[in-house]
Design a protein around this nucleic acid. Structure first.
Length: 268
DNA sequence: CGTGGGACCTGAACGC
DNA sequence: TGCGTTCAGGTCCCAC
């Protein structure tokens, strides 16, 4: 499931192919993929514009044009790749962007992914908390201060912190030895700093390993990420804890399955 | 402010 | 073989 490291990997791989390209049009195969405007208005606002940058904010990928931005969210099964044809290379292509002699294809089996155009990113910013990789130790303490949500819910809340999803939330809480239902405000300052540092380590390592391929995620070149080989708890319920050998437990938190070690991650 | 449930979706895995 | 069920989960929206 694309989270921050997966989206960052996609950004890095597509950057060189996209920057400097000029938009010649688009094809929309599943209308709900495009939100916020009609296909005609969408095309009109991006036509003939040059791509000046490829950016990421949380789990969003942002194709920066001269006066507009194309904002893309992959949700669960979205993939992006460069291809010679607007039809793409698989049966789940929902949208493609026409460039000079190549196409950026958006494939999305589950049809949850969304794309929209926006001249300023203020609306997006309103929905998103800070980038986890830029927070300082003091900022981590401030982030958790006074927050009465359970930590698993808090980490998944994009408005509080941008880019973390189910995989890296569970892996981080395990490595930090914190119970997923611990209230954020109950962390001691030293624990808050340490949890932040652990999350940053997890995300940085996952980017270095080019993301986690659980089922659908692929890099733009079609290959899989490597991070899943290093999972300690995600998807491993009932297996022995890598630390104490007690069986890992699965519970539902905020509608998501959550795997943790009841012995190593004691509740405060 | 916080949580819980449903909706959006379809493929994979599993039970019978 | 094939049908039916369950699970996966990011975000939005509504109810409490």
């Amino acid at each position: 499931m694309p989270e921050l490291p997966e989206v960052e990997t996609v950004r890095i791989q597509l950057e060189d192919d996209l920057i400097g390209q000029v938009i010649r049009g688009s094809t929309l195969q599943w209308s709900r993929t495009l939100e916020g405007s009609s296909k005609i208005d969408f095309d009109q606002s991006i036509l003939d514009q040059k791509i000046t940058a490829l950016r990421r904010r949380g789990k969003y990928l942002i194709i920066q044009l001269q006066t507009e931005h194309i904002v893309i969210h992959l949700r669960m099964t979205g993939r992006l790749y460069i291809c010679d044809s607007a039809k793409g290379l698989d049966r789940w292509v929902r949208w493609s962007l026409h460039l000079d002699r190549k196409y950026l294809c958006f494939s999305d089996a589950r049809k949850f992914g969304r794309i929209y155009v926006s001249s300023d990113l203020a609306e997006l910013e309103k929905k998103l908390g800070p980038e986890p990789l830029t927070l300082s130790p003091v900022q981590w303490i401030e982030l958790f201060h006074g927050q009465r949500a359970g930590l698993k819910s808090f980490l998944l809340n994009q408005k509080k912190l941008a880019g973390v999803g189910n995989i890296y939330a569970d892996e981080t809480l395990f490595e930090a030895k914190v119970h997923p239902l611990t209230l954020a405000c109950d962390l001691e300052p030293s624990q808050a700093r340490s949890l932040g540092a652990t999350l940053q380590r997890q995300l940085t390592r996952a980017i270095a390993h080019e993301g986690s391929t659980i089922s659908w995620y692929r890099k733009p070149d079609g290959s899989q990420g490597e991070t899943q080989k290093h999972f300690q708890v995600y998807g491993k319920s009932d297996q022995p804890c890598p630390c104490c050998q007690m069986p890992l437990e699965k519970i539902k938190v905020a509608q998501r399955s959550t795997v943790y070690c009841p012995s190593c991650q004691r509740r405060v």
